[in-house]
Measured scan of single mutants.
Amino acid sequence: MSIQHFRVALIPFFAAFCLPVFAHPETLVKVKDAEDQLGARVGYIELDLNSGKILESFRPEERFPMMSTFKVLLCGAVLSRVDAGQEQLGRRIHYSQNDLVEYSPVTEKHLTDGMTVRELCSAAITMSDNTAANLLLTTIGGPKELTAFLHNMGDHVTRLDRWEPELNEAIPNDERDTTMPAAMATTLRKLLTGELLTLASRQQLIDWMEADKVAGPLLRSALPAGWFIADKSGAGERGSRGIIAALGPDGKPSRIVVIYTTGSQATMDERNRQIAEIGASLIKHW
């Protein structure tokens, strides 16, 4: 067993022997301040990774656009098919120029040779490549099948209805392509620590998230040296922004954090800054 596999296998073990965790309302004060600064709703939840206990939450059962955070769930569904012998990570998928959609920095470079399922998941999570996500959605049967996968996990809230990039439209009061912070946090925890996926697939999923290259201005910008984070960000229309993450000190994750916002007129930089400040408060009061 590799060191990384050992780390993920012992996530519940280490967490069980940690000192009790206590909620700190100071972080919620910052979440509410972010709402004021952005002029928009902000949803927040913080779960203990081992027990699933909610440590703090704000608007945990209000719907927010998922945006690209759905790509972690998508690759979880792909990995479940791999575990069941219905898919192979090494299978190569070929596609054409007509398949390319807006923001496809990886797939646009491989029109000639195609990409493997493993490479597509890596591109979808680490670079948020939209064509990679659409190609992977095709392998599982489309958005409705991802929703069905989530329902089978016990998540009857999260739903995907459309493809990239239309799913980022974020129309107010439109339930399409949305989740709730509580539902997303619980589902992410199941994917990373539950028995739904094999140990190898859980490790692969967290490795992809740990290698995320496009979430630097968010929670990662607030992390002290030595902290662990595996995350996936999302951005959408109407001032929408979000991030889902597993993080913790001492090089291992111990909490799940989900943050979503929508309806702001603020710039992307300002949305990023507010999420980073929430992260800084979380870490300060850990």
Rank of each mutant, 00 (worst) to 15 (best):
I206M: 15
P65G: 04
G154F: 04
S254F: 15
P172W: 10
L79M: 13
A185N: 00
A276R: 11
Y44D: 00
L111K: 07
T147Q: 08
N152G: 09
T198R: 10
L28I: 09
C121V: 04
R255E: 04
S51F: 06
M115G: 04
D113Q: 09
E175A: 13
M67E: 03
A84Y: 11
I54C: 12
P25Y: 09
L150K: 01
P65R: 01
M115C: 09
W286I: 05
P105E: 11
L38R: 05
G141N: 06
G226K: 07
D33Q: 12
E46Y: 14
Q203R: 06
A280C: 13
I283Y: 15
N152F: 10
R255K: 06
V31I: 09
E87Q: 14
E277Q: 07
H151T: 09
L49V: 14
A40F: 04
L38Q: 11
E270C: 11
N168Q: 10
A123Q: 04
P253E: 07
T139Q: 15
E87H: 05
T262R: 08
R271H: 13
A182K: 12
N173M: 08
A84L: 13
F228A: 06
L223I: 07
N152Q: 14
S104F: 03
E145P: 10
V82D: 05
D113F: 11
L219W: 03
P25A: 08
Q88C: 10
K252D: 15
V31C: 06
C121R: 02
I206S: 10
L79P: 01
P249W: 05
F64P: 01
Q97K: 10
L192N: 02
P224N: 15
T116R: 12
E56Q: 07
I45L: 15
A276N: 12
L73T: 08
T27L: 11
I206A: 10
T267R: 08
I125H: 03
T187R: 03
R271D: 15
Q97S: 12
E277S: 07
A266G: 11
R202A: 08
L100I: 15
W227P: 00
I283H: 15
I125G: 02
P217G: 10
I278C: 03
K213D: 03
L55H: 13
E61Q: 11
V101H: 06
E169W: 08
L191R: 01
E169M: 11
H156T: 12
K71E: 00
V29F: 09
N50M: 15
G76H: 02
D250Y: 06
S254C: 13
R202W: 04
Q37F: 09
G234F: 01
D174P: 01
K252E: 10
T116P: 15
D177S: 02
L73Q: 05
D250A: 07
W208Q: 03
D269A: 13
T126M: 07
L89K: 04
K232W: 01
T179S: 05
R273H: 06
R176N: 11
E108Q: 13
A222Y: 08
E175N: 09
